[in-house]
Simulated assay, not measured.
Amino acid sequence: MTYELTRDRVEHYFDRTATKVWERLTSDAPVSRIRETVRKGRAQMRDKLLSALPADLNGVRVLDAGCGAGQMTHELAMRGADVVAVDISPSLVKIAADRLPNTLKPRVTFASGDMLSADHGAFDHVIAMDSLIYYTEDDIRRALDNLGARTSGSVAFTVAPRTPLLMGMWYAGKAFPKSDRSPTMIPHGPSRLRKTVSDIGQLNDLGRVNSGFYISQALEFRP
C-alpha cells in the first residue's frame, strides 16, 4: 500500500469512524481500564518527546505533525513555541482548536491535510507522535527525508516496536477484512530503521513507553 492510500485510510478512520472515541480518550472523561492504560502511555510518551526539545521554545517554530486532539500542541505553545499543528482529520483539528486556551491561540496555526506538505514551510523542530505508526519502512524514510530537508534541528517521532506482542497482533490483524478494522500499525526495529536512513541523517533512540495496551518507541532523526 502506498503512502497516499495509507494516509487516506487513516483520514477516513479518524475523521469518520473514531472521532468520538478519540475525543473522549484525549479528555478527562472516564474510560475503560484498557483505554486508561493507553491514555497514561500517551501522556508518558508526550513527556518523553518533549524532553528532547529545549525547555524554552520562545521564538522556535515547531511542526506538530499529526496533532490529533491537540495535547502536544498545547504543551508546545505553553513553552512559547510558534506551532503549526497539522492533522489529516479535519474533525480532530477542530477539536484541538476548540480546546486550545485563547491565551495560546496567537502562537498556533492549525491546518488539516498532509503533514508532509511543503506548504507548511520550514521548522526548527518537528514532533510526530504516533502519526507514522501505520507506514512502511520506505514511507518513513521518505517522510524523514521530506521533513529533514525543512528542519534545522530534530524530527522526534514514534514507531510501534517489533515486540512479540505487537508482532502477534499485527499478524492476527492481517487475517481480518480491511473494511472491518482500523488502520494497522506496522512494527519496526530501531536498528533496521537506523540503517535505512543512515545516508540521509542520524537516528537516535529516545526510549520506549510500555503502558498496558500502549507500546511505543520514541526516536529522534537529525538530518
Rank of each mutant, 00 (worst) to 15 (best):
G70T: 01
R150Y: 09
R162K: 14
P187Y: 00
L132C: 09
L165Y: 14
V86R: 12
G168M: 07
I186A: 05
V155S: 06
H188G: 04
M185V: 15
L92C: 10
I95V: 14
T163V: 09
P177Y: 02
S89T: 05
A69T: 15
P101S: 06
P106G: 12
T158M: 02
T151A: 11
G189Y: 04
G70Q: 01
D138N: 10
L132Y: 08
A128Q: 02
P187G: 01
L100K: 08
D98V: 03
G153C: 00
S112Q: 09
F123V: 06
H74Q: 09
T73E: 00
F157L: 04
V108S: 11
P101E: 07
S182Y: 01
F110R: 02
K94A: 02
M185S: 14
P190I: 00
P187H: 06
A172G: 13
S117R: 06
M115I: 15
M78W: 07
R61E: 07
G121Y: 14
L92K: 03
I127T: 13
A143D: 11
S154W: 03
D114E: 04
G80E: 14
V126Q: 11
A143Y: 12
A122Y: 10
A97M: 10
D138E: 12
V83T: 09
R142C: 11
G66R: 12
I186Y: 08
T73N: 03
Y135N: 09
S154R: 08
V62M: 05
R107F: 06
A149W: 08
R79V: 03
V108Y: 07
V126F: 06
I186G: 04
A111C: 07
A128I: 03
L104R: 12
M115H: 15
M167W: 15
H188S: 00
W170Y: 13
M185L: 14
Y134S: 07
P101K: 07
K174Q: 15
M78D: 13
P187Q: 00
H125L: 14
S89H: 03
I95H: 00
Y135T: 07
A149Y: 00
Y134L: 07
I133N: 04
L63K: 05
H74Y: 02
S117F: 08
P164N: 15
D139E: 14
H74S: 04
R162A: 14
M72W: 12
S131N: 10
Y135H: 12
